[in-house]
Computed example of a mutant assay.
Amino acid sequence: MKTEPTREHPDPYFLPDEVTLKVHEAMQEDVGSLVSLFKILSDPVRIHILKALWVSDLCVCVLVEITDYKHSALSYHLKLLKDASLVESKRERNFQMYCLTDFGESLLRTMESSFSENLQGKL
């Protein structure tokens, strides 16, 4: 008599109730502000602006000269970055100067140190 080989059945996946509850809570969290921040950071022009401001506080007129973008386009991007609390501006004589906020600098530093190393050649 020929016998069929028996298949081993894996143990069912078990998740403790407290973990299930925490996962459910995480899935219900409002992540709108985080999504908005990632949308702001999803444009290469805005990343380049942040990197330029990491080097030095700059006037829009300098950014216009070195990027060949129109003043209105750069002003739009700077407004979005300002609304996200990544940059701030102050008037110096006849110039509106932009600089990174502490949050903007911290975020850029984190992106540079973490993401750059981990994403090299993967995307």
Rank of each mutant, 00 (worst) to 15 (best):
Y76F: 12
E105R: 13
V64G: 03
S85D: 10
Q96R: 13
V62N: 06
E65P: 05
N94W: 03
K82Y: 13
E65M: 13
K70W: 09
V87S: 02
D102W: 02
E105C: 09
K82L: 09
L81I: 04
G104S: 01
D68A: 10
K90C: 11
D68L: 10
H71A: 10
F103E: 07
S85P: 03
K70R: 11
L80D: 08
S75W: 06
E105Q: 12
M97A: 03
Y76C: 12
F103L: 13
N94A: 08
D102K: 05
H77V: 14
E65W: 06
R91P: 04
L74A: 05
E88N: 12
F95R: 09
H71L: 15
D68K: 13
H77P: 06
S72A: 12
D102V: 11
Y69G: 04
S89W: 01
N94V: 05
L86Q: 02
F95V: 08
D68V: 06
S106K: 09
R93Q: 11
K82M: 08
K79A: 11
L80R: 06
N94G: 05
F95L: 14
V64I: 09
D68N: 09
E92D: 13
L80Y: 11
T101E: 00
E92I: 15
L81R: 00
T67W: 03
S75E: 11
T101V: 04
T101W: 00
H71S: 15
L100G: 02
L80Q: 14
K90I: 10
S89E: 10
S72H: 10
A73I: 13
V87P: 03
S75F: 08
D68Q: 09
G104M: 01
V87C: 14
K90W: 10
F103N: 04
H77G: 07
T67C: 04
L63E: 02
V87F: 04
L74H: 02
D68C: 12
S106P: 04
S106L: 08
V64T: 12
E92S: 14
Y69P: 06
A84K: 00
L63K: 00
Y98F: 14
H71C: 11
L63V: 07
F95A: 10
R93H: 06
I66V: 15
T67N: 03
K79G: 09
R93E: 14
Y76P: 04
L74C: 06
A84H: 03
L80M: 10
K82G: 08
D102Q: 07
R91S: 15
E65N: 14
T67V: 10
T67L: 04
Y98K: 01
L81W: 02
V64H: 02
G104D: 01
S72L: 08
L63R: 01
E92T: 15
K82F: 07
L86S: 02
E92R: 11
R91N: 12
L78C: 06
V64L: 05
N94M: 06
V64Y: 04
H71N: 13
A84L: 03
D102F: 05
S72Q: 12
R93A: 12
R93Y: 08
D83E: 15
V62Y: 07
E92K: 11
V87R: 00
Y69S: 07
K79M: 14
F95H: 09
F103M: 08
E92L: 11
R93D: 11
T67S: 15
Y76I: 12
S75L: 15
L86V: 08
C99N: 09
L100A: 01
S89P: 05
T101K: 00
